[in-house]
Design a binder for these strands. Structure first.
Length: 692
DNA sequence: TTTAGGG
DNA sequence: CCCTAAA
C-alpha cells in the first residue's frame, strides 16, 4: 500500500523512519522500535503519521470528487489513537493519545470512499445534534473508531475517555495519556469556548472550519465542563505567532484514562520514562520518575558534541553569518502573487508538487509546520503552497501573500580529492559521502534581496521589501552550511594523526564551511594538519556548544532544508509539527562514520602495542585528534574487526580491510587474550595463596 | 569515567 | 553505533 512506502515523510522536522518490514532483519526492527521508544515518539507524531496515512489513503482511494468541499475533518479528537503496523510479525504496536491541543488541531480527513460508506463519520457526528453530552460524543467517536478499524495495513482506533469527576464542574472528556506522556504535557486546563484550531488541509477560508467540526464544536467546546489537557504550545498550534522561547519539558501528566491504555503502557513497547535531563515525567499511573541520571547526563554531554545535526539545529542562533555566504545557491522563481486564486488552490498545489523538486516541497511542508513563526519564513513559506493559506489566516489578519517557488537547490561546492587510480565506484561513494556530510551537517537558508543578505530574521517580509508588489526577481535564497553543525568528519584531519601522510583513504573531504583550506592532507608533514585539525575541530565545537541557550526560530529555518522525500502537501498540512520535540532533548543517534582503512590501521597498531582493555589509552594514542571516535567506538570497532577477521571474505561488507590488517587483528587479539587470561590466573593464584 | 559486553 | 552494569 502506498502508505507503507511513504511513511517516511518528514514531519516535525525529522523523518519518520520506515518500519522495517519483515523482510528486513529482525534486528532492524528491533532497533526501529527501540529508537522510537527513545525518540519519545509522542502522540502527536503518531497522529501525524496516522493523519498522513489517512490522507494518503484518501488520495489513493478512488474518489469521485476530490474537491476540498468533499473532505471532512473528523475523528481523532479527544481520543486515544492506537496505531499498529501490521507486519507479518506485528512487531510494533503503538498507542498514543492526543491531548488537548490535538483535539483542537488534529483532524484527519475522513475517508468515506475508503470505507465504502455513503456518509462520512464526520458527517454523522456533525449532523447528530440531538445529544451533545460527553457520553454521546464519546460513543460517537467510538463509532468512528469502528469504521476506521480496518484500514489497509493501518489500524486506527479511536477512543474517548470519560472523566473522573475529580474537580467540581470540570468533568468531561479526559484525555488519557499514553504515549503522549512521553511528550511534554502541561497541566490540564479548561478549554475555553474557542473553537478548535483546525489544521485543515483544504480550508482556504479565513474562518475556522466550522463546517467540518466535530460534533458541532460549539456544543462540545462551549461547555465549560469539558476538561481537556492542554499543552503549553497550544498557542502555536492554534495559530499564535509568537516565537517559542519557553522551554518546558515534562510535567507530570494529568489524569489518566482507561485500563486498556495502562495495559499497553505497561507493555514493553514504550518506555514511559524518557531520559530527559532535569525532567521528571510521569507515566499514566501517575508515578513520577526522576529521569535525570548522572550517567545519562554524561552521555548527553558527550553527545552534545556530535549530535546528529537534525537534532542540533535547533540550538543555533541565526546570528552568525555563514563563513561562506552563498555557498549554496538555488534556482528561484517567483510567481505572481495573484496567480492562482484560493479557489483552485488545492489543485494547483498538488500540481506544483508533482513538478517541483523535493526541496521546494519540503518548504511547503515546512510551512505547514510553522504556524508559530511569525517572521519572514512563515509568510514566505505560506506562500509556497496556497493550501496553507487558509489554515493560517484563520487566526490572523489577512496578509498579502508572497508566492514563491524555489525550483531547486544546488548542493554547495564540494572539494573532493581522489587518486587517479581509484575506481569510479569509489569516486561515486566519495562524492556521496561528501554530499551526505554537507547535508547532514546542517543547512540553513539565507535570503538575499538584491544581492544583499537579509540577516534580520525578525523583520517582516514587508519591512524587508519582500512583498508581492515588489519585483521578486531580486529575491534569492541560498543554502548555507551551518558552520556550527558541520560534522567533524569533514575535516580531513580527523584521521588519526599518525596516518595522515600515508592514508590510503583518498577522500579529502572538506566542506566550504570548515573554513580551512584542505590541501596537503596527503602531502606529508602532518604537523600543519594537526594545527588545522585543532582549528577545525575547535571552531566546530565552539559554535556547536551550548545546545540549549539559543533561540528556536533559527531551527525552523534550517529545518526547511532537511532533505525529506517529497510529500503531498495535503497530507502534510494536516500534520502539525510537534513543537515540543524540537525542544525536547531527544538524543539522536550519531551519524555513522565507517572506519577508514587508515583508521583501522591506526587502531590495530595501537592495540598491538597497548592491548585490549586499554581503550582510553588507545584513543589517546591513535585517535586523539579524531574527536568523533570515542574509546567506546574504538572498542566496538575492535570487536567488529575481530569478527570480520574470523568470517570469510565473502561475508564481509563495507570497505574491505586488507587481509594483512585482519591477520594482525587476530594475532593481537589472541595475544592479548592470552595475556588477560594469564593475568586472571595470576590473580586467582595469588588469592588462593592468600587464603591458604 | 572507563571497561566490558549485549543489542 | 547504542546502552548500561560494573568497576
Amino acid at each position: 500500500m502506498v502508505l507503507q512506502k511513504r511513511l517516511d515523510y518528514g514531519f516535525n522536522g525529522y523523518q519518520v523512519p520506515h518500519m522495517p518490514r519483515a523482510t528486513r532483519s529482525a534486528r532492524r526492527r528491533r532497533s526501529f522500535k527501540k529508537k522510537h521508544e527513545e525518540d519519545q515518539m509522542c502522540a502527536f507524531d503518531l497522529l501525524a503519521i496516522v493523519a498522513g496515512k489517512l490522507l494518503l489513503d484518501k488520495e489513493s482511494a478512488p474518489s469521485s470528487s476530490n474537491t476540498s468541499a468533499d473532505k471532512y475533518q473528523c475523528a481523532v479528537v479527544n481520543s486515544a489513537v492506537k496505531y499498529e503496523w501490521q507486519d507479518e510479525e506485528k512487531p510494533l504496536k503503538v498507542e498514543a493519545c492526543d491531548q488537548g491541543s490535538a483535539a483542537r488541531n488534529f483532524f484527519v480527513s475522513d475517508l468515506p470512499q475508503v470505507h465504502g460508506q455513503g456518509r462520512s463519520s464526520a458527517e454523522k457526528l456533525r449532523n447528530d445534534k440531538s445529544k451533545n453530552d460527553i457520553g454521546t460524543f464519546a460513543s460517537k467517536v467510538e463509532g468512528v473508531s469502528s469504521e476506521y478499524g480496518e484500514f489497509g495495513d493501518c489500524k486506527l482506533e479511536v477512543e474517548t475517555k470519560r472523566a473522573v469527576k475529580d474537580e467540581p464542574g470540570k468533568s468531561g472528556v479526559v484525555l488519557s495519556s499514553t504515549a503522549a506522556d512521553m511528550c511534554s504535557l502541561d497541566d490540564p486546563v479548561v478549554l475555553d469556548a474557542k473553537p478548535p484550531a483546525l489544521a485543515s488541509l483544504d480550508s482556504c477560508a479565513k474562518v475556522p472550519l466550522c463546517r467540518n467540526h466535530i460534533p458541532n464544536s460549539p456544543n462540545l467546546t462551549d461547555r465549560d465542563d469539558v476538561n481537556v489537557v492542554s499543552r503549553d504550545d497550544d498557542d502555536n498550534y492554534s495559530g499564535c505567532t509568537h516565537p517559542i522561547t519557553k522551554k518546558k519539558f515534562f510535567r507530570p501528566a494529568p489524569r489518566i484514562g482507561d485500563r486498556r491504555i495502562r495495559k499497553i503502557l505497561a507493555s514493553k513497547y514504550w518506555k514511559v520514562a524518557p531520559k530527559f535531563k532535569d525532567a521528571t515525567v510521569s507515566n499514566s499511573y501517575g508515578d513520577l520518575k526522576p529521569v535525570f541520571h548522572k550517567r545519562k547526563n554524561y552521555y548527553r554531554q558527550q553527545r552534545s558534541e556530535r549530535l546528529y545535526p537534525f537534532k542540533k539545529r535547533k540550538h543555533y542562533a541565526y546570528s552568525s553569518p555563514s563563513k561562506l555566504d552563498g555557498g549554496l545557491s538555488c534556482e528561484f522563481v517567483s510567481d505572481s502573487p495573484r496567480k492562482g486564486s484560493n479557489g483552485d488552490a488545492s489543485g494547483s498545489c498538488s500540481r506544483m508538487h508533482g513538478v517541483t523538486g523535493a526541496s521546494s516541497s519540503f518548504v511547503a511542508q515546512h510551512a505547514s509546520f510553522q504556524p508559530w513563526d511569525s517572521h519572514g519564513m512563515r509568510t514566505f513559506n505560506g506562500g509556497a503552497s496556497s493550501s496553507f493559506v487558509g489554515q493560517r489566516s484563520s487566526f490572523q489578519p489577512r496578509d498579502c501573500h508572497v508566492k514563491l517557488r524555489i525550483k531547486s537547490f544546488r548542493v554547495p561546492e564540494l572539494l573532493v580529492e581522489i587518486p587517479e587510480s581509484s575506481t569510479v565506484g569509489l569516486l561515486k561513494r566519495t562524492v556521496m559521502e561528501a554530499v551526505t556530510a554537507i547535508l547532514g551537517g546542517g543547512l540553513r537558508v539565507g535570503v538575499l534581496l538584491q544581492g544583499k543578505k537579509v540577516r534580520d530574521d525578525n523583520k517582516t517580509l514587508l519591512q524587508t521589501g519582500i512583498s508581492h508588489t515588489n519585483q521578486l526577481d531580486s529575491l534569492g535564497f541560498c543554502l548555507e552550511p551551518n558552520p556550527s553543525q558541520t560534522p567533524p568528519s569533514l575535516c580531513p584531519e580527523d584521521s588519526p594523526f599518525l596516518l595522515q601522510c600515508d592514508t590510503p583513504d583518498p577522500l579529502s573531504r572538506c566542506p566550504p564551511t570548515a573554513g580551512v583550506v584542505c590541501q596537503g592532507i596527503c602531502t606529508g608533514s602532518p604537523e600543519p594538519h594537526l594545527n588545522n585539525l585543532g582549528k577545525c575541530i575547535e571552531s566546530d565545537r565552539d559554535s556547536a556548544s551550548s545546545p540549549t541557550d539559543t533561540s528556536m526560530d533559527q531551527s525552523t529555518n534550517s529545518k526547511a532544508l532537511v532533505a525529506v522525500p517529497a510529500m503531498k502537501v495535503e497530507a502534510l498540512a494536516v500534520v502539525p509539527a510537534h513543537q515540543k520535540s524540537k525542544q525536547s532533548e531527544i538524543v539522536q543517534r550519531r551519524i555513522r562514520r565507517p572506519f577508514s582503512v587508515a583508521e583501522v590501521e591506526a587502531l590495530v597498531q595501537a592495540v598491538e602495542k597497548l592491548g585490549t582493555g586499554r581503550w582510553r589509552d588507545v584513543k589517546l594514542r591513535a585517535f586523539d585528534n579524531a574527536k568523533h571516535r570515542t574509546y567506546v567506538d574504538l572498542k566496538d570497532k575492535w570487536k567488529t574487526l575481530v569478527h570480520t577477521a574470523r568470517i570469510s571474505p565473502q561475508q564481509r561488507r563495507g570497505e574491505p580491510v586488507p587481509q594483512e590488517l585482519l591477520d594482525r587483528v587476530l594475532t593481537a587479539h589472541a595475544y592479548w587474550s592470552q595475556q588477560q587470561a594469564n593475568q586472571q590466573f595470576k590473580h586467582q593464584h595469588a588469592e588462593t595463596c592468600l587464603l591458604l
